[in-house]
Amino acid sequence: MSTTPSTASATSTPPPVLESALPPHGEGVAGDGAIQRALEAAWPADLPTADERELLPAGRGLLRADATGTGRAKWSDVFPASDQAVVPAFATARFRIQAVIARRDGSPDKAVVHLVWAGMDRGGTFTDLRITDWHFTRTTSKKGASTWTPQPRT
């Protein structure tokens, strides 16, 4: 019977290092796919495809209008005329949506468009992985057609 200590512990490999599913800050466009996949994995789809097709471009348009000022007239209920003269915080050329999803927001008639984006502000500071949510309510016309209406920020 041997009394030699086991060498298994001395030769065992260390536990694996956990890697982030997100790219490092400043990765640029190359990292946007990873951000989109991480967002989709963290928040599984729960809306019909037709609703997502309507909500995603609306959310993108609202964020672009809010951040850059471009297209605010299209969203007059969200951006009143008094907001039209506001100098945008971000230049259109330095603004990019990195990822976007649309999901239910507590009921089938409410939704949220969750956006992750990057931009350079007027002061020249570039920041990525910014997060903005736009909330929508389903409205139905007298003819029975439904559409998603963005909710003004409170």
Rank of each mutant, 00 (worst) to 15 (best):
T3Q: 11
T4N: 10
S6W: 01
T7N: 07
T11H: 03
P15Q: 11
L18S: 11
L18M: 09
L22C: 08
G26D: 08
G33H: 09
A34I: 06
R37F: 07
A38T: 07
L39E: 06
E40W: 02
A41P: 03
W43G: 01
A45K: 03
A45G: 08
D46H: 00
D46A: 00
L47D: 00
P48R: 03
D51K: 00
E52S: 03
R53F: 04
G59E: 02
R60V: 07
R60F: 07
G61Y: 09
L62W: 09
R64K: 15
A67K: 12
G69D: 08
G69N: 05
R72D: 03
R72V: 08
A73N: 05
S76D: 11
D77E: 11
D77L: 05
A81R: 14
Q84M: 15
A85Q: 11
V86M: 10
P88C: 08
P88G: 07
P88K: 03
A89M: 13
F90M: 11
T92F: 04
R94G: 08
R94P: 02
F95Q: 08
I97G: 06
I97L: 11
R104K: 13
P108T: 01
K110T: 06
V112H: 01
V112E: 01
L115H: 01
V116Y: 04
A118N: 14
A118W: 03
G119T: 09
M120L: 10
G124E: 05
T125N: 08
F126Q: 08
F126P: 01
L129G: 03
I131C: 04
T137P: 00
S141I: 04
S141Q: 04
K143N: 08
